[in-house]
Simulated scan of single mutants.
Amino acid sequence: MSNSVYDFSVNTIAGEQVSLADYSEQVVLVVNTASQCGFTKQYAGLESLYQAKKEQGFSVLGFPCNQFGEQEKGGSDEISQFCELNFGVTFPLFEKIDVNGENAAPLFNYLTTNARGILGSKRIKWNFTKFLVGKDGKVVKRYAPTTKPEAIESDIQKLLSA
């Protein structure tokens, strides 16, 4: 049983395995993303938060997912180029994963177990569900896809200042 997000390794969008322990002592926002979603414009808000707070020890980690309306059909190169060209994304992106079901990435099983949704549901309902993780690697809060990144800024700042 994992005790924090730092216990997981994931593959970057370029295919390199990295340990999330590389983000220890940082406040992290983990987001399942998609390029063809009504919420895709949130990439801009996520990038803005990342730029504003990265020097204080904050990172956004984007995990593309094709489980919701097949809104992330492309491969890693296509996803990476889309995010960079359309939204200027510089925060870390990772390989496309599943966030629900028997093939769900272990990181997302951990996140959904430790920060449940409405009515205690583990299941992620849609793209751009966000998980705020404290400096200790533990999940602090889960946010709905409709929650705009700028609405999370005060929660992020509280954790950075703690």
Rank of each mutant, 00 (worst) to 15 (best):
M1Y: 13
M1L: 13
M1C: 12
N3I: 08
S4L: 09
V5A: 03
D7W: 02
D7Y: 02
V10A: 11
T12N: 07
A14T: 15
Q17C: 05
L20H: 10
D22Y: 04
D22I: 04
D22W: 01
D22P: 00
Y23K: 14
Y23T: 13
S24N: 14
E25T: 14
Q26Y: 07
V28C: 13
L29K: 06
V30P: 09
V30A: 10
N32K: 13
T33S: 12
T33R: 11
T33A: 11
S35V: 00
S35P: 07
C37N: 13
F39T: 03
Q42C: 04
Y43I: 05
Y43H: 10
Y43A: 09
Y43V: 05
A44Q: 14
L46S: 08
E47H: 05
S48H: 12
Y50A: 07
Y50E: 09
K53H: 13
K54M: 08
K54H: 11
E55P: 01
G57V: 05
G57L: 07
S59G: 01
G62E: 08
G62W: 04
G62C: 10
F63T: 11
P64T: 08
P64C: 10
Q67S: 11
Q67P: 14
Q67N: 12
F68W: 08
E70Y: 10
E70G: 12
E70N: 14
E72N: 07
G75K: 08
I79G: 07
S80Y: 09
S80R: 14
E84P: 00
L85N: 12
L85G: 00
N86W: 00
N86Q: 11
N86V: 00
F87K: 03
G88H: 05
T90K: 07
T90E: 12
F91M: 09
F91L: 09
F94H: 15
F94P: 12
F94S: 11
E95I: 06
K96Y: 02
K96I: 03
K96E: 04
I97W: 04
D98A: 10
D98K: 10
N100R: 10
N100F: 04
N100Q: 10
N103A: 13
A104P: 07
N109K: 15
L111Q: 09
T112A: 03
T113W: 02
T113E: 15
N114I: 08
N114C: 09
A115P: 04
A115E: 06
R116N: 03
G117C: 02
I118Y: 01
G120E: 07
G120S: 05
S121H: 11
S121V: 12
N127W: 03
T129D: 00
K130M: 03
F131M: 05
L132D: 05
L132I: 06
L132E: 06
V133G: 05
D136L: 00
V139S: 07
V139W: 02
V140G: 06
K141Y: 02
R142D: 05
Y143S: 05
P145K: 05
T146A: 15
T146E: 15
K148F: 10
P149Q: 03
E150F: 02
A151H: 03
E153H: 03
E153R: 07
S154V: 08
S154N: 13
Q157S: 14
L160A: 06
